[in-house]
Design a protein around this nucleic acid. Structure first.
Lengths: 171, 171
DNA sequence: TGACAAGGCTAACGACGTAAGCCATTCTGG
DNA sequence: CCAGAATGGCTTACGTCGTTAGCCTTGTCA
């Protein structure tokens, strides 16, 4: 494993354990047993690290979505549960502009694939679904909903508009 | 106008003109013709300023939404157009945890009111609509959609799931 | 063996938020 | 009308941040 990858490992760990404010060059260096300026032998700057973390977050999210339960509800569940399990990673994955130049091609597509599939290939619908899920998660993670709100119910309501029309099953 | 309000005016101006990185205590002070430490006579800390800016942003957004055109489409248009006209303000309005203690009561409700109305009073539906709009705007503002994507069409698709069922008009 | 790359190090810079404490002006109550 | 307090500036300074410059050791290979 390259030294750069080690740094990214540590960065992810710091982020998840202590939050974004603790993610300083000096803290990273300390955890690696070196001094802050030495990091620059392996990494362009702090933004480079963030881009690497973003890439890893997208990959992890993509994997989680790929293993989602069936249906739109399963996908939505997977999306929300991953974001709640890794709120800081979700933040760097979505809040910063996508570093398209620094991120391996295909990562973006891989993360999008399960959603596009759920949308039956309709790109606009896929984006709408993504935005809906992202909006719900983003607002939840930054505590914008009134405390005590029943967000499970909100999700169900939100997805109702996008469910395929109920196939008339015999009753 | 209180000195604090002047500071907030300047903060909004800096934010809109030069972006969040330029929003430093020293820059604010310079624009007001004083020194940075003097700001602390009127403001608790930088976070206090951000909370004030957040409050103003929410009020402005609420006013814009209240003046929206008719229907869900009108409301959606108003939401998106305000966010695109004031992307940095939209950011502080939504990305930071809501400083409920520091913000005048009612502001939150006022911003929510037009959406709740459009949802016919259904709180879950209102949150879903808000999340959808926020998600679309947030992803657009941070350049997460593929360049060149037709976002107008995406919005139309997104809202389709929430439109009231078409009343059967004579044709 | 000697050049060179890799990867550490120290020292330091400038920007940031902010605390401490001083001083002039202005307001206010006896 | 004046004493004292409140107001709102100021300078100085601290600690933290990202980052640069330049040095030195170690391992590799011609």
């Amino acid at each position: 494993m390259s030294r750069r990858d080690e740094i990214l490992d540590v960065a992810v760990a710091v982020l998840e354990e202590e939050g974004p404010d603790a993610l300083t060059m000096r803290e990273l260096a300390t955890r690696m047993g070196i001094r802050a300026p030495s990091l620059y032998k392996h990494v362009r700057d702090k933004d480079d690290i963030l881009a690497g973390v973003q890439e890893r977050a997208l990959i992890a999210l993509a994997q989680h979505l790929a293993a989602a339960g069936p249906g739109l509800a399963g996908l939505a569940d997977a999306y929300r549960s991953w974001a709640r399990a890794h709120p800081r990673l979700y933040e760097v994955a979505t809040r910063r502009p996508l570093a398209r130049e620094r991120i391996a091609p295909g990562v973006e597509a891989a993360a999008a694939a399960p959603i596009v599939a759920a949308a039956g290939g309709d790109a606009h619908l896929a984006r709408a679904l993504w935005a809906l899920a992202h909006g719900l998660v983003d607002l939840e993670l930054s505590d914008r909903f009134p405390p005590g709100a029943d967000l499970d119910a909100t999700w169900r309501t939100a997805l109702r508009g996008f469910e395929p029309p109920p196939s008339p099953t015999r009753s």
